[in-house]
Every structure is written in C-alpha cells, then in structure tokens.
Amino acid sequence: MRVEVDVPKCVASGQCVMIAPDVFDQRDEDGMVVLLDEKPGAELHDDVRESAMICPAAAIRVVEEA
C-alpha cells in the first residue's frame, strides 16, 4: 500500500490523525495534514483505508499495490 496526501485540499479536521496517528500528523502552523509514513505496514492498512474513507475533504489517496 502507498499513501498520498493532497495538502491543499486538507481542512484540518484531524480525523486521520485520530484514526492512524502513526501514519498522519498535522503541521504546527495550520493543522494541515503531514504524511509520516507513505508505505505503512500491513497492520495499519485498515486504519489508513478508514482514514481515507472518513476524510471530509478527499485529501487522502490509497494506492493498493500487489
């Protein structure tokens, strides 16, 4: 799995940070998303998919790789 974030779309809802804090964080200056781990381990995949689903701004993209 590869994760991409589209920072300009982010609205700083914090939802992804709540669900997958090992993968997502927020910038200090404006709360915009920061990607911590673009290739998260398998144990985090469900949380990352859920973050992408819940993100209100469609700012998270998950590319499933074989």
Partner: peptide, 17 residues
Amino acid sequence: HARIRRMVTAPFAIKRV
C-alpha cells in the same frame, strides 16, 4: 472559505487539543 478557515485551524489540531 479555505483562506479564512486556515487562520483558525492551528489551535484545533489534535495535539494542541
């Protein structure tokens, strides 16, 4: 909206809260 909302997002970031 985004320009103005971003002026007040920092204090509501998860870590700050």
